[in-house]
């Protein structure tokens, strides 16, 4: 493997892991409520911006991070409670517009409170690059990969082994039956938004030292996360992770070997190609439509 290829791979995996985390956030909410939350990228932004602001007030980094994740989770809960839940019987597009409205609102709010400028968050353990086989990787990238791995393991344990996790899955498969089984589906929906917001916040904090952060950083990352979720098949956790990594690596390889001009088009070309041949994404269930 050439050093060049390795470098593109490192770059792709790092950014792909972030897409995967955002994609997971989309999937969790989609699973529980069949809602596509276009404000998912804003969770990421709030996580990063809030951490920067709290570190700025002199709080130690770990405390700031915990607080930022908590703040974002509250934002997620509020979004579900006050914006999505009241419109639960509305059409798909209507809910999409509500979440788009929410994303504009959140961006406006953060811009008002924390300003329009870009901010840098210090890396968790220094900026000294590590050299592997002629390619370099930042310690922060290892943090991104490590924590993504931990989250994936934790989530799969949560959904397969805990009662709450199983209840969320049950609700997603059949809300009416879940209700009959005594599951409080309203509460489940709330929890899924909170969980998804926390995931977004963690992703946002992890990348802030690499990508910098600002009030509008969530737009592009949110969009790519959506692509990752659809690529893998909506609602499939493994699919979102695979989708994210494929996207990240494809982008880096395209920039390196093909043309950096068209790097941003690559994810969308891939998604179109895949959807043309596999209309439910890579891992999506081929569902039958309800009559």
């Amino acid at each position: 493997m050439s050093a060049e290829f390795l470098q593109y791979l490192f770059t792709g995996i790092t950014i792909g892991a972030i897409y995967a985390l955002v994609g997971l956030g989309f999937s969790i909410i989609y699973n529980a409520s069949h809602v596509i939350n276009f404000a998912q990228g804003e969770f990421l932004m709030i996580g990063g911006m809030c951490t920067v602001a709290l570190v700025g007030t002199g709080l130690p980094m770990p405390v700031a991070i915990l607080a930022a994740v908590a703040v974002t989770a509250v934002a997620g809960l509020a979004l579900q409670k006050f914006a999505v839940a009241p419109a639960r019987n509305a059409e798909v597009v209507t809910i999409i517009i509500i979440t788009i409205g929410a994303s504009i609102f959140l961006r406006g709010l953060v811009q008002l409170v924390w300003g329009k400028e870009f901010h840098a968050l210090p890396a968790f353990s220094g900026d000294e690059p590590i050299t592997i086989g002629g390619a370099t990787i930042l310690p922060q990238s290892l943090w991104v990969l490590g924590i993504t791995l931990v989250i994936v393991v934790a989530l799969s344990w949560f959904f397969n082994k805990t009662l709450l996790g199983k209840a969320i899955l049950a609700t997603s498969h059949n809300p009416d039956a879940a209700k009959l089984m005594g599951i409080n589906t309203g509460f489940i929906l709330l929890i899924s938004f909170g969980l998804s917001a926390m995931l977004g916040a963690i992703a946002g904090i992890l990348v802030a030292p690499i990508t910098l952060t600002s009030y509008d950083v969530g737009i592009m990352l949110g969009l790519k996360g959506f692509v990752a979720a659809v690529l893998g098949g909506l609602g499939s956790g493994a699919g979102a992770i695979a989708g994210g990594l494929i996207l990240g690596i494809a982008e880096a390889m395209a920039a390196g070997y093909i043309s950096s001009d068209y790097k941003d088009a690559v994810p969308f070309v891939i998604i179109l190609a895949i959807l043309f041949f596999m209309p439910s994404g890579l891992f999506g269930l081929r569902g039958t439509e309800r009559v």
């Binding site: 419109a87 409205g101 929410a102 504009i104």
Partner: peptide, 18 residues
Amino acid sequence: LEMIIFGLILMLTMIFMP
């Protein structure tokens, strides 16, 4: 305030007039 109000109007309209 423009973004905040714009986002709010969008959300409220769709919530109350789906």
